[in-house]
């Protein structure tokens, strides 16, 4: 059976400007290839670039990921040591004031460290030894 397609926000926005243009667009050009002048095409290209750049900036400055960054970068997301660090965070650290402050500082600094660990295998090894040492101390 024919499934009705969704109408895009842009299509309705165009309709609010000029109905005739939308109808002629549909009638004379392919549904996916809109007719644009060279000047319009150029500004669309610039607009797309700006969108992409802004998307990158926004996700970089806003994204808050509540994973155990350093352990995840060192051992992986599913590793038992990573899981035990998460457990330590939830059961011990989050119950005290000092622990909460430590978590705040950790989440502010660790994404950058995790990126460095991800890129360098030698730092990853050092991090592995350090984390195993800390893991032994806390368990």
């Amino acid at each position: 059976m024919f499934k009705k397609k969704h109408t895009s926000a842009t299509e309705l926005a165009d309709l609010s400007v000029c109905e005739t243009k939308v109808v002629l667009d549909r009638k004379l050009t392919n549904r996916f290839i809109k007719k644009h002048s060279e000047k319009q095409k150029k500004s669309i290209r610039i607009g797309n670039k700006k969108h992409e750049q802004h998307h990158k900036n926004v996700t970089r400055h806003y994204k808050e990921d509540k994973r155990c960054f350093i352990a995840t970068a060192t051992f992986g997301n599913e590793h038992p040591i990573t899981a035990s660090f998460r457990l330590f965070r939830d059961e011990k650290l989050e119950k005290s004031k000092a622990g909460k402050i430590f978590i705040k500082i950790y989440y502010a600094t660790s994404p950058a460290l995790a990126t460095i660990i991800d890129k360098s295998p030698s730092i990853k090894k050092i991090s592995q030894y350090a984390l195993i040492f800390i893991h032994k101390k806390i368990t």
Binding site: C18, E19, L24, K35
Partner: peptide, 27 residues
């Protein structure tokens, strides 16, 4: 709903009131 009406050619499409737009329009 107006868009659907126009798709089915049940109605005549209106033209824009913003005349400067017509100067740059490809149609």
């Amino acid at each position: 709903d107006r868009n659907e009406q126009l798709k089915k050619f049940n109605s005549t499409a209106n033209k824009t009131n913003i005349k400067p737009l017509c100067k740059t329009c490809v149609y």
